[in-house]
């Protein structure tokens, strides 16, 4: 018994030591990169912010409603189009449209949820996957018919903001995505742990049948979470329009990226999405900074995802 405890203690110490070594290595790497290619960290963090802010709402839906929403990026695309035309009509800046876009997209999400997804919740998970695939096609093609495949963009002065330090120029606008991602992560944590609706949602997510027995309206909780996630996606749609041009297919790559990030973090682990995004954003930018590795920046995303998932599965098996 005592020996076993000692063994556990030893393991615990080893784990601690390993974490410390990893942290030190990461810090050393960061310092080295900062000195060597200072812009990599700046660009990588901003890219990570964009990834995370789009992926977090998908993580929320997957964690609680347990569906992979293949129309995730398409909802952001619709929000961005709505923002564009509202801004054009009213001569408004997209930043003022963040909250209205969130509200409109949440409403759209709630309607879509009630009309379609809710009816498929009891079916096998693949049904929901293909259902949202159908929704994604329909949304993309409706926008394509209405506005053609030409791209739209509102040119903005402030997105070219930058800071000069020494010889280097650091663009800074995309830190707005970093702020958004952190806000989303913290806000969701507070919502899920401090509010009644949030606690109910967590309970539903963990055990829908049990939650129903204690009197929680399961479908209402799911609908609420889905609408909340879409509100976050909608706000990102308005923000996305500041940086990017929009066209019917603009959202679909982000669906896949978000899905990968959520899986890398592990289902239900929202802060983990932040970590995964930083890892990916930095490694991508690092590869892009050098001539020899430039073309391979895309592959690092997938290599890391496989490595993290396999690594985790091995450590789970060891624990067992």
């Amino acid at each position: 018994m005592a020996a076993k405890q000692n063994g556990n203690k030893g393991k615990h110490m080893a784990l601690k030591r390993r974490t410390a070594i990893l942290a030190a290595l990461a810090a050393a790497a960061t310092v080295l990169i900062l000195l060597w290619k200072p812009t990599v960290i700046n660009n990588g963090l901003q890219q990570a912010g964009l990834y995370a802010a789009i992926a977090i709402p998908m993580g929320l839906v997957l964690g609680i409603v347990h569906i992979v929403n293949l129309a995730h990026g398409e909802f952001m695309m619709v929000a961005a189009y709505a923002t564009y035309f509202a801004c054009k009509a009213l001569g408004m800046d997209p930043l003022f449209a963040v909250l209205p876009a969130a509200a409109v997209t949440a409403l759209l999400g709630w309607v879509v949820f009630r009309l379609t997804i809710q009816r498929a919740l009891k079916a096998p998970e693949l049904n929901q996957l293909i259902l949202t695939f159908g929704i994604a096609i329909a949304l993309t093609q409706v926008v394509n018919i209405l506005f053609t495949s030409q791209t739209y963009k509102i040119p903005l002065e402030y997105v070219s903001a930058s800071i000069d330090i020494g010889e280097n120029t650091f663009p800074v606008w995309s830190y707005v995505f970093v702020a958004t991602a952190i806000l989303y992560a913290v806000g969701l944590r507070l919502f899920l742990t401090r509010t009644t609706a949030g606690k109910a949602a967590v309970a539903v997510g963990q055990n829908p049948r049990g939650a129903a027995i204690v009197g929680i309206d399961v479908n209402r909780s799911y609908g609420l979470v889905f609408a909340l996630a879409l509100a976050l996606v909608g706000a990102m749609g308005a923000l996305f329009l500041t940086k990017s041009a929009i066209f019917p297919q603009v959202g679909s790559p982000y669906t896949m990226k978000s899905f990968c990030l959520v899986a890398m973090a592990g289902i239900g682990n929202i802060p983990g999405i932040l970590g995964a995004s930083v890892l990916l954003g930095l490694s991508e930018q690092l590869l892009r900074a050098f001539r020899e590795t430039r073309a391979w920046a895309d592959i690092v995303f997938f290599v890391l995802i496989i490595a993290v998932i396999l690594g985790r599965s091995v450590s789970w098996r060891r624990k067992k």
């Binding site: 030409q150 791209t151 903005l156 997105v159 041009a245 066209f247 603009v250």
Partner: peptide, 11 residues
Amino acid sequence: YDADALPMLEQ
């Protein structure tokens, strides 16, 4: 492509 035109100028 056309989607790159304005963002690249801004950057």
